[in-house]
Design a protein around this nucleic acid. Sequence first.
DNA 1: TAAGATTGAACAGTCAATCTTA
DNA 2: TAAGATTGACTGTTCAATCTTA
Lengths: 179, 179
Amino acid sequence: VQPVTRHPAGERPAPDDVDETVEFWRRENPDLDVVTKEAAMRLRRAGHALEKSLRHELAALGVEAWELEMLLALRRASGCCSSAGGLMRDSGVTSGAITNRLDRLEERGLVRREPDPSDRRQIRVVLTDGGRARADRFLAAKSQAEQAFFAGVDRDLLARLAGDLRTLLAAHQSACPDG
Amino acid sequence: VQPVTRHPAGERPAPDDVDETVEFWRRENPDLDVVTKEAAMRLRRAGHALEKSLRHELAALGVEAWELEMLLALRRASGCCSSAGGLMRDSGVTSGAITNRLDRLEERGLVRREPDPSDRRQIRVVLTDGGRARADRFLAAKSQAEQAFFAGVDRDLLARLAGDLRTLLAAHQSACPDG
DNA sequence: TAAGATTGAACAGTCAATCTTA
DNA sequence: TAAGATTGACTGTTCAATCTTA
């Protein structure tokens, strides 16, 4: 990957509303670390924009984010099995939320709860055939939506962004629901 | 800003769980655009990690994210005035949520609702002295938490990250509650 | 005792309907 | 008619308490 210079020929990008907000706070407090503030705001906004965009695309197709997260997490648990605790840990929501989500998915016949023979405190959650088909169909839709979100962005820049975010994440082992 | 090469001397970073998940889906579907998938996952995870971290630090000090968002938005509305609709637009939540938030803040004496003389459909929300002091105190705490979050990251990388995210955001004009 | 899953109360958000004023 | 704010029904989450098994 070739490094990409930020401002090819000394061009300065036009200030956007993040710049304006950072500048406001810097005027209020000259000690403010503007690079950190800018990075924090942009990271948060970009993450929100991505989530909002995916949520919108998927909702239009008739699936909600929490549902697809669950189905994909189960799909990835290759043997098609996982415990409620496992789902909790890699989705980042509480155990009560997992119970609630499983109730709704089970009602619709997308998953089944089965007793775990080796530890009867746990349950094993298995994807039904219908659940698996639904996961696969909407994974494709999600991937398309992600491509659309990044459509206007240069490939090299995108790769560099991914690499830099990897570095950032290495310092913050993070659970996050994703596919 | 000097461009920073990703892998200085041909070193490859150790695969993390994002790499593993992307690789899993690529095996299932060789057509998958891995760069896009990786960027999407990392952006989402990094955003979540930042939010979670800030939420945790601030909660320990006795303030919730939604409250600080509101106070900072009002603080930034320089004349100390803003309408409910304005707050709605730059926080990204619905008008019902704004009404609810204002009720709770007003109850605690942090804001006041005042009639707008020029358009009696609107209200003007003003920060009380107590609300302003609280905003300033917790803005400082928030900025510290952001610095802590990015503490392990090289400054040049952080600046480049901010620049790349600016490019990304330029294509997605996004409302987002922030300070 | 501790771990895993469930329950129910409290909380915060959306959405659609309503009320008031432009 | 339309715009701004509020209301109420509903959804989904957290949190603390509970039940069962290790």
